[in-house]
Nucleic acid binder design. Structure first.
Lengths: 331, 331
DNA sequence: GTGAAAGCGCTAACAG
DNA sequence: CTGTTAGCGCTTTCAC
């Protein structure tokens, strides 16, 4: 990496400052100067040094740090996609990390990334260590917490309520006449949001007088396998259920496969409901009863809220992106 | 962000240099000095400025840029995960971007990211613009091309051969007695790797005297829908097929759903084969015939090759991570 | 075991 | 419209 502003300045017979102004597309130079500088920069294969720029000016960072629970989650893949599209269009660069549902790993990651003086952060979830909060409070840039709405966000927040998702599904299943509900989840304590959905589900059932009959929460990745074996375990312990709510759609589809393998008819013998809205769920022989989460929209809104704040445009502190219950044919 | 090396130096009664040495865990200071400096740094909530460090030294960058075709791909999610785990363990930070299967978008992304002077790059695919190659040749750091093995990598390469995947599947299906094969793909020209698999598939069939009967390549995202409707279209044009090879497992599962909805028996009436090895595929009523790609291993190997090169440890230029044909029960 | 000086490439602030 | 000066926080180099 050779050419710098000075090299171009020398070749163009102007000062570094003029080159800097031209290259950043500002004002204060003649059209002729601009063309000359641009041509020379091009010819020299000039690559700006953002390190120097950001270091020297502190306004100039276009780095955004984003931390998700897992990089292998289909839902967060879409959130990332929404963030990435919005940010790259606006000229920002994304640094990512995964925290494996651990607030401590999140703090460790932030500690690394904050040293690069990013313009802002997008975090998922509302659970953070005190160390994280300190770090972020001293940092100058905006922080957007996505996915789960927080009553008191660190700064900005974009998402929806997981408790409400669970409650809404419980109401729906009750309306469909279900009375003996079970739950199959995964990741246990680590996934706070799954727990929030279960909480909303459970308390709504209880208030309606038909409390949750049984639940099985595996210490495993919340995927197809866990859904399959989770349902098997749950039914072996408590065969008399008329519906099962799953941690997510992957697990629900695993449960569906288990039911099919055992000749359990869905939804006649057993209702099955998921959460998330993965694409596969809508093309099953019977469309899955689930909650559709507008993942890409959340990512986009988060990125835009961050940039708006950066530009001092001030929008709402909390942005609600509503989920939608998809009745489907399995519930 | 207030405290810097000088503040700590003042408070500790030593020079900036000594503080710098202590904080980086080097040598050349007494245990007593170390403890005093560490305590003060902690108390002041010192956050190092990597911008300044990397700018001043050019050895100090621990940024790694990684570009994938799509952030929403299940397979690349696992690759990212492998990369992220390996890199974060080794103290590097990841900058990511998506190129939507476009070499031009990749170049635009690299042009942004290279300005931050990353230690190296991980790119997916072997197709790059001349501009990209120029940019990367002048950059000092290592470049790892993953996913598809290149005959002449820019620098390092980790992956497998997509042509071989297609060829191997063709041989397998021929051995199972299939004679009239079709293909359903998506994304057309944009996804060069899918095209490579088709090429291997097609040429192997032709050499065996049972050439590909029909193919349908949609201009759409390669997901369940496309598989469902792609198979519908293909069969409407050419009903007399005995097996269909799909672009990937998502599409194959979509195809399976279509077959089921039409009462087509799989594998008796029609064989179905996918590619990729998504988790869902192994829990279907019948295990999907597919090629399992060790995605996480590829990510891990790529990250490790990059870091080994960075540390001057010199390993192989090309690392083959073999795929595995899963016979399954649908082919 | 420790310190002083120089400089990385850029931009802000001011001068002309 | 253009140039000069100073300085961002760190590391490298050399001196003690």
């Amino acid at each position: 990496m050779k050419a710098n502003l000075e090299d171009i300045a020398l070749a163009a017979g102007v000062s570094k400052m003029t080159v800097s102004r031209v290259l950043r597309g500002g004002t204060g130079f003649s059209a002729e100067t601009r063309d000359r500088v641009m041509t020379i920069a091009q010819r020299m294969g000039y690559v700006p040094n953002r390190l120097a720029a950001a270091f020297g000016s502190d306004q100039a960072s276009t780095l955004v740090g984003m931390c998700v629970p897992r990089l292998t989650s289909g839902l967060f893949g879409h959130v990332l996609d929404g963030v990435d599209r919005a940010l790259s269009r606006l000229g920002y660069q994304l640094m990512i990390g995964a925290n494996n549902h651990s607030a401590e790993e999140e703090e460790a990651w932030i500690r690394q990334v904050i040293a690069w003086r990013p313009a802002g952060f997008i975090l998922s979830g509302r659970i953070h260590t005190p160390g994280t909060v300190d770090l972020l409070r001293e940092a100058t840039g905006p922080v957007v917490e996505i996915w789960d709405l927080t009553t008191s966000p660190i700064d900005l927040s974009v998402g929806f309520s997981h408790v409400d998702c669970g409650a809404e599904m419980a109401q729906f299943l009750l309306r469909r006449g279900r009375r003996r509900a079970g739950y199959v989840g995964a990741l246990a304590r680590a996934d706070v949001m799954g727990a929030a959905r279960l909480e909303g589900f459970q308390s709504t059932l209880a208030r309606a007088g038909h409390p949750l009959v049984a639940s099985e929460v595996l210490h495993d990745m919340p995927g197809f396998y866990a859904g399959y074996y989770g349902l098997e375990t749950l039914l072996s312990r408590q065969p008399r259920l008329d519906v099962v709510y799953f941690h997510n759609d992957e697990m629900a589809i695993g449960g569906l496969a288990y039911a099919q393998s055992r000749g359990i008819r869905v939804p006649e013998d057993l209702g099955i409901a998921g959460w998330g809205g993965m694409e596969a769920a809508s093309i099953l022989p019977r469309r899955l009863t689930t909650t559709i989460v507008p993942t890409t929209a959340i990512g986009k809104a988060a990125a835009e809220a961050l940039v708006a704040r950066l530009k001092g445009e001030g929008g709402p502190e909390v942005t609600v992106i509503p989920t939608r219950l998809e009745p489907g044919e399995t519930g």
